[in-house]
Amino acid sequence: MTDGGRSTGEEAKALFFELAAHRDPAVRDRLVTAHLGLAHQLARRYANRGEPYEDLVQVASLAIVKSIDRFDPDRGVEFTTFATRTVIGELKRHFRDKGWAVRAPRRVQELYLELGKVTETLSQELGRSPTVGELATATGATEEAVLEALEAGQGYRTSSIDATDRNEETLASHIGGDDASLDTVEDRELLAPAIAKLAPREQTILQLRFAHGLTQSEIAARVGISQMHVSRLLAASLERLRKSVTEADVDADVEITQVEVVEVDVKAEGAPDQAQADGAGDHAKGDEEAGSEPTEPTEPTEPTEPTEPTWNGEQEGRAAS
């Protein structure tokens, strides 16, 4: 379906074959860097739904790494198609875990929260995704109510985190603590011990940067050190994480590249507000072949909050009403 960039697509394919044959980290890094643009594009597409854009970029970038590791070039599927599916799946899961901005009557919120658990349980029991009818039976709700709740789960406003399900558990209890975004890192388990070994200030800086999305300058002001010092501490922290992970496990490559992925964000923030001047809405046109340019790393171009004058953007406006 995507027909542009035939030659670069072939080049990417060659790199994937090389990666499959030799598992060369350098090749892997090239592929990751080359496809980060796709992560940004997809994150932008699903922005304006109550989750910070940078969190979505992080989730999408991780999914790109995961896709590269799992991609089998022998299967004849375009990598971008394979990766897009993985990224969307991860974004859906992220939204689901975060409550996907439920803004609905209380009974719908309660049912939505319950559906999340029941879906997980039934999926394990059945070995497949449950049907709406099965969910209705399991929850005692009607199929219509289940559909309504699932649709509400695709709302575009942040829900009250105090909404409780039938077990009186709040959405907040599912979300976790202050470091909600950092959970996407820690949940990978491999990085958690390494992060814990960092000095408290370095942990704070990492959290402010990657969990709260602050710029280096904002972090500097908050912590009381210079922006350059923040930059150095971030680089040092990431390097230590990289070494820890390298020593920990072969699979650590995933996390290592994640660190590199977010570091790209750090570098990109030197151009303030460039997204506003970057033709928001003309999405995908500027970097439409980001997914197939392996030899020229694609610098993520829009690290700041996007605006998209499409239905997504209008939905954001609706959400504010």
């Binding site: 379906m1 594009q41 375009e78 198609t81 394979f82 897009t84 995908a284 046109k285």
Partner: peptide, 12 residues
């Protein structure tokens, strides 16, 4: 349709 739309549909 932009390329991204096509990719998303490919995936879904």
């Amino acid at each position: 349709a932009d390329d991204l739309s096509l990719r998303i549909l490919d995936a879904l």
